[in-house]
Every structure is written in structure tokens, then in C-alpha cells.
Design a protein around this nucleic acid. Structure first.
Lengths: 171, 171
DNA sequence: TATTATAGGTTTCTATTTGCAACTTAAATT
DNA sequence: AATTTAAGTTGCAAATAGAAACCTATAATA
């Protein structure tokens, strides 16, 4: 980010306000976390999170409206409703993990247990970081803003990393 | 995350509530974004963000109290106060970028410009992802929870990636 | 079949938070 | 000395959050 300041009139146009409109309300991230942990029903959310009924109802509606959750009445028990993460909702996982890791790192030294591991090798995941196109880990001093028109395109096919990322986000 | 559900009683103990306590209020992320873009003074925040004076004052105090911003009276102009990101605040960059990228990807197809690039090669950064200890990009189906006591330690020295990350977060 | 329990809400009312506008205080500029 | 700037504070109205009771449809139980 350095000395280069993002053109400030355009600050309003970035993705952050959009994201906050969907996820900026109180409890939204907690509901999301529960959903990632397999929670699917109203009463289940209610008992996992210490949230008021009406607020939960409101948030679930809003998360559904914004396409983060999908609401389906259960065919087998018609009292029940299933809330499931959509692709859009699942795509919030990096954000959520990043936020959570930050909380763990800087919070009151509660060493978190259990820990998130890669199912394949059972090793803890890395801290979420910002990476250059060739996967180098970047700090905030390594970043700057550029007009997208001024960027020299590189041949993405020669970069299998980009492919992996593209493939992942196309699930 | 798969079928393995995080022990739910322990849901309360993860880093997310901590993080949300500091960053969960309305405007906090917008203030953070402004700070990352070099905004440092009260009136400057006020003109960049469409926030009310009293709310801004309140948020700046709270962000300062939670150690995300550092507040210093300016020596050269003693009316002014400087708010600067601390290390703890800077460490929120991956979270913020992840959130922003999500907003850009799923928001109303406003192709964002300017774009964040690596200062070194002027190429756009990658989408923020979750990675295994050996840098593989992981999706939510690749993750599971494990008791930290049950994890087989690997020799971190043989993994230069971990070193890079460790070095970065030690700035 | 009648009764009770469960699931997923809604309603009502109160407390807290947000937001606007005006005011304040100290320091710098003209 | 008068004005402007910076960083707040105060007072008040509107919006939002939260607790508790209530409601409706369905399912399970006696």
C-alpha cells in the first residue's frame, strides 16, 4: 500500500461496502461459522449461538436474500427448514478463517483447540496471507494500486498456480 | 470441514468472537480501509467515509483501545492527532483483502479499478486462499478439525514456506 | 383420535446504538 | 484580534437489537 494512496473518490466503489452490506451486521459471521460447521436448522443455530430468536430469523432471511444461504423446506419433516451455504457463501471461508486466525493471534492468548488441519496430511493450515501471482507472500509494503488498463498481461497458462486457484473458485 | 463438525461447545472459544468484538461494529472495516490507504487524521477520515462525527470519534477510540490504531498528538500542529495502524492493525490486511475480493467477485459486477498489484512485478495479486502447510490451495472439503495434541509435528526448518510466513508475521 | 411436543417463525415492548446537527475547546492562521 | 481548523462532545430523533411471550403447521405419542 506504501505511499500510494488509492484514489479516494473511488474508495466507495471497491468491493468492501458490498461485502459489508451482506456480512457487516452483527451475528452474520457467527451464523456463517455455524453453517460451516454443519449447522443447518433454525433451532440448531439458536442453541449454538447466543442470539435472540427474532434476530436469528432476520439474519437468516437476509443471508438468504443476499444469496449466501439457501433455504429449503425439508421434504421428510415438513416442519423443518434447511439452511445451506451456497457457492457464494462457501466462498467466504478464506475471509472467515483469516478473521478467526487474527482473533486467535491477537486475542487473549487462548491457544485454540481443536485446530484446522488439511484432511490429507493432517497438518495445520498456514496463516492466510496475500500472495503475488507467483505465490510469494506479500506484506502491505509490497502492494500498490494500478489501473487495470496499465497492467501487462502475462500468459496465465504458464502459471499452474493460477490454474489451481481458478479451478478451486469454479467449484 | 466435511462432515466433521467442530466440537460445538468450543465454538465460543475460537478466535472469531474476539475478532468481531474489535472489528464487528459498523464502519470499523471502512475505517481500517481508509487507514490502509494512508488516511491518518480525524477530518480526513470524516471526508473519506460518509460517517457521522460522533460515530467516527467513538470508533477511533474503540479501535485505539483494542490496539488496532495508535493515537498520537502531532508535535508540529498540536491541534492535530495522528491515527496509525499498529502491527495488530496491519495484520488485518489479509482479512480485509479477502473480504474485499469476495465483495468484488460476488457484488454487482463492478469490475474494480484500480487493482491491487505486487509492487515488484506489477501483476495483480492472487485471490486470498486457504493453504496447506506445503502451500497447496485448500477448499472447505479439504479441511477438518484436529486436537492439537494429536498432530504429528513436522520439522518446520525443512519448509522454507513456513519460514517466509513466520518472518512476515514477525515484522 | 386427542394430546402434546417440535420447528420455525412473529409480535410486543424495552434498551441500546446510530446518525444528524449544533456546540465546544484549543491551537493555528490571517 | 478575529477567523479558521482540528478534534472532539452533547442533545435529541430514528433505527436496530434483544428478551419474552405468542402463533401456526406439522409430527410424535397416548
Amino acid at each position: 500500500m506504501r505511499e500510494l494512496r488509492e484514489p479516494l473518490q473511488q474508495l466507495a466503489e471497491c468491493g468492501l461496502p458490498t461485502a459489508l452490506e451482506a456480512m457487516g451486521e452483527r451475528w452474520s459471521f457467527m451464523i456463517l461459522r455455524a453453517a460451516f460447521n454443519g449447522v443447518r436448522h433454525f433451532e440448531e443455530f439458536l442453541s449454538e449461538i447466543s442470539i435472540a430468536r427474532n434476530i436469528l430469523a432476520n439474519r437468516l432471511t437476509r443471508l438468504t436474500e443476499s444469496g449466501i444461504l439457501h433455504r429449503t423446506p425439508c421434504p421428510d419433516d415438513r416442519r423443518k427448514v434447511e439452511y445451506r451455504l451456497t457457492k457464494k457463501g462457501l466462498d467466504l471461508l478464506p475471509t472467515m478463517i483469516a478473521l478467526r486466525q487474527w482473533g486467535e493471534k491477537w486475542g487473549t492468548g487462548v491457544l485454540s483447540n481443536p485446530v484446522l488441519v488439511d484432511d490429507r496430511d493432517r497438518q495445520p493450515i498456514l496463516p492466510v496471507t496475500i500472495r503475488s501471482h507467483d505465490e510469494r507472500v506479500l506484506g502491505h509494503m509490497d502492494l500498490c494500486w494500478m489501473n487495470s488498463a496499465d497492467i501487462t498481461p502475462i500468459n496465465a497458462d504458464t502459471h499452474e498456480v493460477d490454474d489451481r486457484v481458478r479451478k478451486l473458485s469454479a467449484i
